[in-house]
Design a protein around this nucleic acid. Structure first.
Length: 479
RNA sequence: CGGGGUGUGGCUCAGUUUGGCUAGAGCACCUGGUUUGGGACCAGGGGGUCGCAGGUUCGAAUCCUGUCACCCCGACCA
């Protein structure tokens, strides 16, 4: 049909070219615009509103665990960045430097924060003196800059928005507990709010954060079968407190170094939402973070009473949810497609025939199912529908994820899967970085995590080298 | 940083091979009218120093040199 042809022209189909599909959706759903600086994007109202909803819900959950928000400077003196060796080595290649103040060269270069561990440490060393000062559980919402060579909207931009939590604790146990707590908070958030199933686990030595003792991660599977690291939580142990000299007097008046953690989530999550739920018609937003949850589209809106009824319905819906009326003078068909492109979970169609019959038509974005609904029940029905959609979206994403997890018992199987089956590969690993390197070089596959939950022994030997196996690892091609 | 591609109204592109007259189309935009249950139609209208800088030429969007930017795929990263 002509109409189908037009839609195909509007967005590249996922199966034809996933990368292009992604770019099309990001731009055509009006989430971002490209800016005059490479790798820096303008986040437009619809994109930013998603971020605000993410922020709001995460922040609420943080605070329920005792997190306090602060704001740190965006500049780090070079000398401060260099205090922790692994950390500076990890980040130095991608930091942006400020060399001048006005017309005069600075005495010391300032780095634009790529992350703020060093700033928090420098601060903590001054404000922590006693066990009574602990724990410190601070977080900041800010942007950071990493001078990436190749960039993609939301997935890898040179400046991105995030939150970074930085905590200091008296004991190793407490730090570990916080690290795990935040990872679980992230995972629950992804699953409950973004309808995105994740695998929780630990990063290998090779993949862990620069300066961390241990990095925990949540890994999600995108629709094309590639993995996306969606949130991390690090236990630093005393790796930072020692070089930064963050000490407190314990109850016995002994000086002790604090134990620290950090954890972060970024605007990359928006990329994840797009790639987990989107389809060939555009975005599909989980109701809980959709900026507009329901859009009312009047049919024959110039006919007597239609627009009035439509605004009345919108107003009623607006009392319990984020509702909008599309009273632009576009044709209904155009509005339908536009609403789908933007991923609005529920659409309400309302025309003269409906009004006469005292009903309207509800259309689900995720399934396109049309449901007739009496006008006097519309609020209750839409609320219920939003819940159903949220739940179904999670189940669908989970079914997709679960059907793209493959077990490999030896290298032949591993190779065959990596080359032919998109998704996660579960395989045993000996613990040797050499095997990770080989797998990466041969197959462009990296270790995503050592899962916490399903650590079963699917084989006694490493799928790569055949030596005794230590851990089950999820592998995959990653963004 | 390696490989590939592209720069022409807001967007998508044609025109470049083989230099030529006033630089085109579709979409979007503005005005008026008719329409409206899956991207409506008619009429009229506005908007471009062809990425930038040099050069060749009587004449350059088109040829040459340089340069910048963006996109895609790798490597690196959230």
């Amino acid at each position: 049909m002509a109409q189908e042809k037009k839609l195909v022209e509007a967005i590249t189909s996922m199966s034809e070219d996933f990368a292009q599909w992604y770019t099309d959706v990001v731009v055509k759903a009006d989430l971002i615009a490209y800016s005059s600086v490479k790798g820096c994007m303008i986040i437009k109202p619809d994109g930013y509103a998603i971020w605000e909803n993410i922020q709001q819900e995460l922040d609420r959950r943080f605070k329920a665990t005792g997190v306090q928000n602060v704001y740190m400077p965006m500049f780090i003196p070079e000398s401060l960045l260099q205090v922790e060796k692994d950390h500076v080595e990890g980040f130095a290649p991608e930091v942006a430097w400020v060399t001048h103040g006005g017309l005069n060269p600075l005495q010391e270069r300032l780095c634009v924060r790529p992350t703020s561990e060093t700033l928090f440490c420098d601060f903590y060393k001054d404000i922590i003196h006693s066990h009574r000062d602990l724990p410190k559980v601070y977080n900041q919402w800010c942007s950071v800059v990493r001078w990436e060579k190749e960039t993609r909207p939301f997935l890898r931009s040179r400046e991105f928005l995030w939150q970074e939590g930085h905590t200091a604790h008296a004991t190793a146990e407490e730090a570990e507990e916080r690290t795990v707590q935040m990872l679980n908070l992230y995972a629950d958030f992804c699953e409950e709010v973004l309808a995105m199933p994740v695998v929780r686990g630990q990063k290998t030595e090779k993949e862990k954060f620069a300066g961390a003792e241990a990095t925990y991660t949540i890994e999600a599977l995108m629709h094309d079968g590639k993995a996306l690291q969606s949130g991390t939580s690090h236990n630093f142990g005393q790796n930072f407190s020692k070089p930064f000299n963050i000490q407190y007097s314990d109850k016995n008046n002994q000086l002790q170094y604090v134990h620290q953690t950090s954890w972060g989530m970024t605007t990359r999550l928006i990329g994840a939402i797009i790639m987990v739920h989107g389809d060939d018609s555009g975005l599909v937003l989980p109701p809980r973070i959709a900026p507009t949850q329901v859009i009312v589209i009047p049919i024959q809106q110039k006919k007597e009473g239609v627009l009035e009824k439509a605004s009345e319905v919108t107003e009623r819906l607006g009392k319990t949810m984020r509702a909008k009326l599309d009273d632009s003078d576009k044709s209904p068909g155009w509005k339908f497609n536009e609403a789908e492109m933007r991923g609005i979970p529920v659409r309400v169609e309302l025309g003269p025939k409906d009004i006469e019959a005292g009903k309207c038509v509800l259309v689900r974005r995720d399934t396109r199912e049309k449901i007739e609904c009496p006008l006097d029940q519309v609020e209750a029905k839409v609320v219920e529908l939003l819940e159903t959609i949220q739940k179904d979206m999670f189940e669908r994403a989970k079914a997709h994820r679960d059907s793209h997890i493959w077990d490999a018992h030896n290298y032949a199987e591993f190779t065959e899967i990596a080359n032919n089956k998109p998704g996660f590969i579960r395989a045993m690993w000996c613990g040797d970085e050499a095997c990770e390197n080989k797998i990466k070089e041969d197959l462009a596959v990296t270790s995503r995590c050592m899962p916490f939950n399903d650590q079963e022994q699917i084989s006694d030997v490493c799928a790569c080298c055949g030596k005794p196996a230590k851990k089950l690892v999820y592998w995959g091609k990653a963004y």
